[in-house]
Design a protein around this nucleic acid. Structure first.
Lengths: 150, 150
DNA sequence: TCATTCAGTTGCAATTTGCTACCAATCAGA
DNA sequence: TCTGATTGGTAGCAAATTGCAACTGAATGA
């Protein structure tokens, strides 16, 4: 299972930003690795324990996410164990993780079923993320559309 | 490739809403199918042409998304071709698609490289989706955390 | 020093994905 | 109404991906 650090992706749909993002993180595990990194995971074992991912696959995912600039190996003064942390691009996936979380809360739990929650410093729940136009009207798939090419 | 309509998922991480959502749509193709449904795709061939997905896999994904309540086969007065459309739960993935799109725009294109854009009725670009606390301060992975169990 | 944990690697089996046919039903046109 | 093209799949098989269990060599820690 080799991975070419300089690999440029063969994009599924080169002009679509959604497709490019799913090409980078749209597999069974990458977003959960990112989720755990956002929640403080830093070592190989941290990620393995929290996700339950197979170890060889975790190795591969950490390398790919590193190669694509979403996480980085930090410090590693030689003769020290390496840790991973999110890059700025990785941290910037926060709205993606939040929107996945909020959809799950709304649609993937039975009424009354418990789940973890995301809170701010004051322990207040993170409010719903709602796309809005500049004038403040809510946007949905029905009042927006994709304009091709730029 | 059979699929049990009554199948309940073996959740990867039952208490985490992020994991539940990725269990439902976190594969190589489902989110692109949803994206295309939001952009007007309705027939099997629509989806196949837009995504480029293999036909047997598309069959499987449409069944799974239907079984999980994200899309539905509409009308199909017998002796008519069936069309798929998003359910309310499927439409509610809009913030997920938007955040994936916006991350891609920010991080997956070289400067000056063209890509499709999402616009509202007035042709104005959809503004950035930014998680905010109730008092209006921006939230990031660094000033939020997961509180276990409800 | 010596056991334990960490961060992987290796080999193999099981699962998933991606072709390339193939097919019956539907639709469009003459 | 016949005829050909398109639609919405299936079937079979090869290739790629994933998962599991065992192994390794460093790093840590008592």
């Amino acid at each position: 299972m080799t991975y070419d650090m300089a690999a440029s992706i063969a994009w599924t749909d080169p002009s679509c930003p959604v497709a490019r993002t799913t090409d980078l993180v749209g597999d069974r595990w990458s977003l959960l690795v990112i989720r755990d990194a956002m929640d403080g995971a830093r070592s190989f074992t941290d990620f393995q324990r929290r996700t339950g991912i197979a170890r060889n696959i975790l190795t591969d995912r950490l390398r790919k996410l590193t190669a694509h600039g979403l996480i980085a190996q930090v410090d590693a003064q030689s003769g020290k164990r390496k840790l991973y942390e999110l890059t700025d691009a990785g941290k910037d996936l926060f709205p993606v993780i939040v929107s996945l979380r909020q959809w799950g809360e709304r649609h993937a739990f039975a009424a009354g079923e418990d789940h973890s929650v995301l809170v701010g410093d004051n322990y207040a729940r993170v409010p719903e993320l709602v796309p809005m136009s500049a004038d403040g009207t809510p946007l949905t798939s029905e009042n927006t559309r994709v304009r091709r090419a730029h």
